[in-house]
């Protein structure tokens, strides 16, 4: 976890973030600045950094360690020369998603959206899309917790319009 790039002897500044459930996380400044929401908090107010606690209203403390870990690793990947082999990034990403339920994935997507980090948001929404690829309509509804609001007639009409797309779906 220790980054070899921080060779300077000055102590890395820390920023305190407060998750939705009140738990505090002390985060190195560059990692915290990966989040646009945190960054914008300090714009024009850099002096406040030391003692301000940034409230993250939509992020539960359950997901904070994983999210911070993602930022740390990916910012290290970006900085490294030569760039890390694709397999290394892929291995990290796969490990990140392992054992995450669909519900946890959705919660993290909402967290990434709130934190306004494109890289994490893109990664997670892509992962969600991969989980519903080839799945039946019923599966996708359950995945998102969406209720069917079509009348049977409407549904039949849409099905007829898109008949060509319904072959070859996986069984749930």
């Amino acid at each position: 976890m220790a980054s070899s790039s921080s060779s300077s002897s000055t102590q890395v500044k820390k920023i305190t973030l407060k998750a939705a459930d009140g738990k505090h996380f002390e985060v190195e400044e560059p990692v915290a600045m990966e989040m646009e929401t945190v960054k914008s908090f300090f714009v024009g107010n850099e002096d406040a950094m030391k003692d301000m606690v940034v409230p993250l209203l939509n992020v539960s403390s359950e997901h904070m360690p994983a999210i911070l870990d993602f930022y740390r690793n990916h910012s290290e990947f970006r900085k490294r020369t030569p760039p890390p082999p694709a397999e290394e990034v892929k291995a990290f990403n796969e490990a990140f998603l392992e054992n995450k339920s669909d519900e946890q994935l959705m919660e993290m997507i909402m967290a990434a959206n709130f934190l306004n980090t494109k890289e994490l948001l893109n990664f997670l929404t892509e992962a969600a899309a991969n989980r519903i690829k080839n799945k039946s309509v019923e599966y996708v509804r359950a995945f998102f917790g969406i209720e069917n609001d079509f009348t049977p007639e409407e549904e039949a009409r849409i099905r007829a319009e898109n008949e060509w797309a319904f072959d070859g779906l996986d069984e749930d």
């Binding site: 519903i132 996708v140 969406i146």
Partner: peptide, 19 residues
């Protein structure tokens, strides 16, 4: 954001999920 990442074939089936 999520649905628009699906290739057309899968997306077309997603049209039936909800209005």
């Amino acid at each position: 954001n999520i649905l628009s990442r699906l290739p057309t074939i899968h997306f077309a089936s997603a049209t039936r999920v909800s209005k």
